[in-house]
Design a protein around this nucleic acid. Structure first.
Length: 587
DNA sequence: GCCGTTTTCGGCCCGACTGTTTTCAGTCG
């Protein structure tokens, strides 16, 4: 059972409690939802956490849910869950995936029409709506009947709750809309917020905050966006639309003198805001996008900047990337937040695929070494490392392999003479073969300063075997960096499983580094593992893995991952100046 | 059911918007 499936199960329990008796179980409902969210975001599999007895380290998992999950992993079911769901119609649950359907609405329909079959319930509801049987129910009307039909239609077309965009794609859409918004005289400023501002690896819907002296006019302007599918909702200070491409965009507007609290509110995360608000309650304060209300007097303090909002709570301003309620509020109060690594700290890129004819095992770059060096200089880098894939093993003899590697080294040496203002490093991205050996032999290895190593084939190995394979590859003295360590491709495949405790221990002991790969579909290490690596004192490098000049700009997304993982400058090796970096690579 | 920011007991965020309502329930973020 995957973490996502387990999270769904916990959400089912929360929904069941809601249906059974929302008042009585209101805090259990919150607890189950919290635990579900926590497990959905956890990169280690629950079954492994059970094995290692670490389940309760997850926020929101206490003694009770821990026991249930242990039972689930051991026996495949949970007695308590069966008791809870016993009196809840099974046909209710599929409806919960449909936007605008919650447990109450789903239950009313399923219960009133005695729908029994979860496999056909969507079709059943559709038919009932088409036959105008739903409007006659108390609490429903003509409009809700039409809304239900549309929601079902959109869900079928894939506009569901779960389609998430990779970060740069979401940024592009947001930029387009912000450009449009800024053309209005009623828009003073517009910023992307929500998960986009917190730089999550994938973004569900696009949130934009607008500062305006006339919010209503700004909203009117927003909902006449030319690339619009339809307006989902529209009020005096906020509106949501579906673009013609099917992406949801939420806009909230407030006057400039309240913009600070709006930025804070709309950036989230939800958990961060809840933590902040629970803290405020104890001080007799109530927080919202409008400002800070003093509970006794009812007076509301307003804030034009986010800094002032946080400062008013006695906290330092918290970088958006770490607003996840994982300890940042506490540290902000103690004025002890980490100083996160920044894009300008990066002094070079160590993972660059040029078009040099190395006859590689995998994809080759599109631009010459010279073109990529020019770009590196424009980016202000002090150094650049070439790290093409190793030559294809099956198509060359040993001697041919060596001659390719020797020629490549010769080329790099020539470039070093030609380019005085940037240092060039001679690396390679070497495959770790299924047996744990590296793809090139010692003689070829001699032509390199050091090598990156990674998994590019035979992903389907169990956790223990794969960990052994990776550590075997990494144990070569020239292997310094494990690139895209989990092998995940967002929205496409999960990574292979690795025992990261063992990987961390090994890296620490043998002075190896893990890569944060900035390629938008990878963003690998994932932020949660970066945080763990930082905790273990593991060094990392942030690389673009560029196959073209334009891709070298993607470095920023890797930096965002590092920041989300609480990495500081000294955790990231390619913030080092050249001499120190090369010493480490060659040691 | 979880959790420790004055608490190991007694708390648990806040508001926008919609549709069906004459004052609110449901959903969402």
């Amino acid at each position: 059972m995957t973490n996502h499936e387990i999270a769904s199960l916990l959400r089912k329990i929360a929904a069941s409690y809601t249906v059974i008796n929302e008042q009585k179980y209101r805090f259990q409902i919150i607890a189950y939802q919290k635990a579900a969210e926590s497990i959905d975001h956890e990169t280690t599999q629950v079954k492994d956490l059970v094995k290692e007895n670490k389940l309760e380290s997850l926020p929101g998992v206490g003694p009770s849910i821990r026991q249930h999950l242990e039972e689930l992993i051991k026996t495949g079911k949970v007695k308590h869950f069966e008791t809870v769901t016993k009196d809840v119609p099974a046909a209710l649950f599929p409806l919960l995936s449909i936007p605008s359907f919650g447990p109450k609405k789903a239950f009313k329909l399923v219960n009133h029409f005695k729908l029994k079959n979860p496999d056909t319930v969507l079709e059943d509801i559709k038919k009932l709506a088409e036959d105008h049987r739903i409007a006659e129910l108390p609490g429903f009307g003509d409009k809700s009947e039409k809304d239900i039909l549309r929601a079902l239609g959109e869900y079928k077309k894939g506009f569901g709750k779960t389609t998430r965009m990779v970060l740069p794609y979401a940024s592009q859409i947001a930029d387009k809309i912000i450009d449009y918004l800024k053309k209005s005289p009623n828009v003073e400023a517009a910023f992307p917020l929500g998960s986009l501002r917190r730089k999550l690896s994938t973004v569900g819907d696009i949130d934009i905050a607008v500062s305006s002296k006339n919010p209503k006019k700004a909203i009117d302007y927003f909902v006449s966006y030319p690339y619009m599918g339809r307006v989902i909702e529209q009020g005096p200070i906020s509106a949501s639309i579906l673009t013609s491409g099917g992406q949801q965009v939420d806009v909230m507007v407030l006057e400039p003198h309240r913009f600070g609290s709006l930025l804070q509110h709309f950036t989230g995360s939800k958990n961060h805001n809840v933590a902040l608000r629970e803290f405020a309650i104890k001080k007799g304060l109530s927080l919202s996008e409008k400002g800070i209300k003093h509970s006794k007097s009812g007076k509301v303090d307003e804030f034009d900047t986010e800094e002032k909002f946080y400062n008013a709570l006695g906290m330092d301003w918290i970088p958006p990337e770490i607003r996840e309620d994982t300890g940042e509020v506490e540290l902000a109060l103690k004025h002890n937040l980490p100083k996160l690594v920044q894009l300008k700290d990066i002094k070079g890129d160590l993972h660059i695929h040029s078009s040099y004819p190395i006859e590689p095992s995998h994809d080759m770059g599109n631009n010459s070494m010279e073109e990529m060096l020019k770009k590196a200089q424009e980016l202000g880098y002090e150094y650049l490392a070439f790290s093409e894939h190793n030559p294809n093993l099956s198509k060359h003899t040993k001697d041919q392999l060596y001659s390719i590697m020797a020629r490549r080294k010769e080329k790099i040496e020539q470039l070093k003479l030609k380019y005085k203002s940037i240092r060039i490093i001679n690396l390679l991205e070497t495959d770790i073969l299924p047996n744990g050996n590296l793809a090139i032999d010692e003689k070829c290895m001699g032509e390199l300063d050091a090598t990156l190593v990674s998994i590019h084939s035979v992903f389907k190995m169990d956790k223990e075997e794969m960990t052994k394979r990776v550590l075997s590859g990494l144990s070569h003295p020239k292997a310094k960096i494990l690139t895209h360590p989990t092998g995940r491709l967002l929205n496409e495949r999960n990574g292979y499983e690795l025992d990261f405790e063992k990987i961390f221990d090994f890296c620490k002991q043998h002075n190896k580094a893990l890569e944060i790969n900035a390629w938008p579909q990878r963003l690998d290490l994932p932020d949660t593992l970066v945080r763990q690596a930082v905790g273990h004192g593991i060094k990392m490098v942030i690389d673009s893995d560029s196959h073209a000049v334009s891709e070298m700009d993607l470095m920023q997304f890797g930096v965002s991952v590092a920041r989300r993982g609480w990495a500081q400058k000294n955790d990231i090796l390619n913030t080092l100046e050249y001499n120190k970096l090369i010493d480490w690579l060659k040691e």
